[in-house]
Structure formats: C-alpha cells, structure tokens
C-alpha cells in the first residue's frame, strides 16, 4: 500500500496543541512543585559517583524531572525547580556540600535548564531536544569552570593554583560533560516514553 498520502500523526499533533491551551498557570506551578519534590526524592534514592577518582563529584537521576520540567514548562520553571530542589535538600539536613554545594548545584542546573528550555521552547521534536541538551551540557560545563574556581578554594584553602587548574580541566570538566551526556540520554529516553503514551502535559 502506498502510505505516502497518509499523514501519520495529525491527531496527535492537534491534540498537543489543544492541551497546551488548557494549561493554566496554577497547573504549571503545581506540576513544577511536584517535579521538584520528585527530583529531591530521586536525588536521595539514586546518588552514585561517576568518576571513581573523585567520589565527591556525584550524579543522580534527580536531574531528569527538572529537565522534563524545563522542556514542558519553560526555562524559568526549570530554574524554579532547581531552586526548590536545593532548598529542600538544605532543609532536609543538606548533602555533603551544605550551603555551598547547593549553590553550586543550583547554578549548574539552572544554566542547563535555561539553555535547554529556551532552545526547545515547548515544541518537542527529537532534533530540537538533542540540540537543546547538547548546548545545555556544554554551557553547564563551561559555567562550572569559573564557579568551581571560586568554590573549590573555600573547601580546600591550601590548594595551589596549578593544582586547581589541572583539577578543573582534568576531572571537573570531563565529569560535567559525562554528567550532561548521561542526563541527556536518560531524559530523552524518558521523554520518548512519555510521548509514546500520547499524554497531555
């Protein structure tokens, strides 16, 4: 049969548009709040170190709800989710980093969310998603260099400048790139799974 005449997904697309109109601000705020809570819960469930040489650089699946929030709700909701998630983390007694760790995590994730959210702009197709995630990863890794340049000496005042720079480029930069790549893969897989179910978000 010749299938070229058929349009494969007209119903899905119009469905998306219709649902988008229905989304109210209240619903977005509630969804963002729940995603922040989910992000926090997953962070506590699934913290594992990425590079064996630097066990304090941890990653977790808590970024997935946040990035999904940035994709569906927009960049500023992504930033808000990152903020609330770190606030919850602090209120629950704080992770290994305390206030400083939370601030650094917030800066990293919000830079990722801003770039991702403004590239994707709520239109979800694979091309834009991959572009957004790649740009987000790169921007996050680049932003983390000056931030860590400021933050690491607060934990290790004795560190020398060459040691700090070699740490930043040999451990920290690859770590952030791997972390971003892992986030990209897991989130895109999750997003496709959600889209397959043809849900209205």
């Amino acid at each position: 049969m010749d299938r070229s005449g058929e349009k494969p997904e007209p119903t899905v697309k119009s469905g998306w548009k219709e649902e988008k109109m229905k989304r109210t601000k209240l619903r977005s705020i509630i969804l963002a709040g729940i995603l922040a809570a989910l992000s926090f819960v997953l962070m506590r469930f699934t913290e594992f170190p990425l590079i064996p040489a630097a066990p304090f650089l941890k990653t977790d699946l808590g970024d997935i709800p946040l990035l999904i929030g940035a994709v569906y709700l927009g960049p500023w909701y992504g930033v808000a989710i990152a903020f609330v998630k770190n606030l919850l983390f602090l209120a629950s007694g704080g992770g290994s980093g305390g206030l400083l760790g939370s601030t650094v995590n917030f800066i990293a994730l919000s830079s990722f969310a801003i770039v991702l959210g403004s590239i994707v702009k709520r239109t979800i197709n694979l091309k834009r998603l991959l572009l957004g995630f790649t740009a987000g990863t790169v921007v996050m890794a680049l932003v983390m260099i000056p931030v860590n340049f400021w933050a690491v000496p607060l934990f290790l005042p004795g560190i020398t400048r060459p040691a700090l720079i070699s740490y930043l480029f040999k451990i920290n930069l690859p770590f952030n790139l791997i972390k971003g790549a892992l986030d990209t893969i897991t989130t895109v897989v999750t997003l496709t799974a959600i889209k397959k179910r043809n849900l209205s978000i």
């Binding site: 601000k25 705020i29 509630i30 709040g33 922040a36 609330v84």
Partner: peptide, 21 residues
Amino acid sequence: EDVALMISIAMRFVPVLFEEA
C-alpha cells in the same frame, strides 16, 4: 507567591512521593 506555593507543594509531596518510590 508562586515560588512560595511551589515550595509548600513540594514539601507536601516529598513524603508521598518517597513512599510511592
């Protein structure tokens, strides 16, 4: 107000989601 609403909803849902997870 929006941020405060988000925070209170998030706090409310942490135990629920934890149990669910």
